[in-house]
Design a binder for these strands. Structure first.
Lengths: 154, 154
DNA sequence: GAGGAAAATGTTATAATATAACCTTTGCGA
DNA sequence: TCGCAAAGGTTATATTATAACATTTTCCTC
């Protein structure tokens, strides 16, 4: 195992501990399945589909059925620990533990990397536009598909 | 039939004629199935799912199978006559015949109405953000979910 | 610690969305 | 008219997601 991976693991463990604490504050439980799925999602910069996660769980613990995964995903979505990427039907970790914020995804169709951004300018432009037509926004879905800096030259 | 509907029908026919002309210019064919599906999509301000369209076609012409609908949808998407709404897995008419432009959808979760907008401010904010990180955008997905002006008071 | 409600999970079945693969028909230019 | 390319038909199946009900676990109350 290389230094980088070691750091990454440390980072993951710390992040999970923080999430654990947040759950405690909120009076909700980060159970074994929920925690494991969150870990799996967080170990990647790509979004995973529900059935990708299902396969990974099955490899670890034998029989697992779709509702198990979807229920855990629902919980993690509710708590704001992951996001759903609509244009991929897939799920990705959210670096911020707060429940609802306006984010944007930059999805590289080359390498699959999905980057989460929080651009104040974009958020403001969206809110201005909604306000102009009296539309009350509940959820802002912004997904930019294309090629990341690393893949443009490929 | 009321005046409004009559106007609407006229408008639809004119729009279809324009699309027909565009197809001719591009050397592609607006066949019977394609035209009918486009009509069906255009008669609504709500997005239709592929299987909604399938059911409507079946009601008109008996047996129709999914690939028929999906192929027509692919054609209409390619030509830019309709858009796919990712967060609904559904399709909606595009008032502009040009192939690729940056649009935003305002989706009312109350009445289902999906409004297409072209807000220059939003587009610019998205492009600025992408440029800042060297991301080459191919497609901009912007879907705002919430309540339209008419449904806020409901 | 026993009882019981609420939460979580297990289990079975199926719904909803989408495409692969191969075959037939149609349109159209050589 | 031949033959190719595009379109559509047909069958089967992949992928994504949820409904409904049974069982287990948690944890609060007494």
């Amino acid at each position: 195992m290389q230094l980088h991976d070691h750091d990454h693991d440390l980072c993951l463990r710390e992040a999970l501990d923080r999430i654990q604490a947040v759950c405690h504050e909120r009076g909700v439980k980060l159970t074994e399945v929920r925690r494991r799925i969150l870990e799996l999602i967080w170990t990647s910069h790509r979004a995973y589909g529900a059935y990708d996660l299902l396969d990974m769980l099955r490899a670890e613990r034998g029989r697992v059925d779709p509702p198990t995964v979807y229920r855990a995903l629902d919980f993690l979505l509710d708590q704001g620990f992951i996001h759903r990427v609509e244009s991929l039907n897939a799920f990705i970790g959210c670096p911020l533990p707060d429940r609802s914020h306006s984010v944007q995804f930059f999805i590289c169709d080359g390498c699959g990397t999905t980057l989460e951004a929080q651009d104040r300018g974009i958020t403001q432009a969206l809110e201005r536009s909604a306000k102009a037509q009296g539309f009350q926004v509940e959820q802002k879905i912004v997904e930019l598909r294309g090629r990341c800096a690393g893949c443009c030259t490929d």
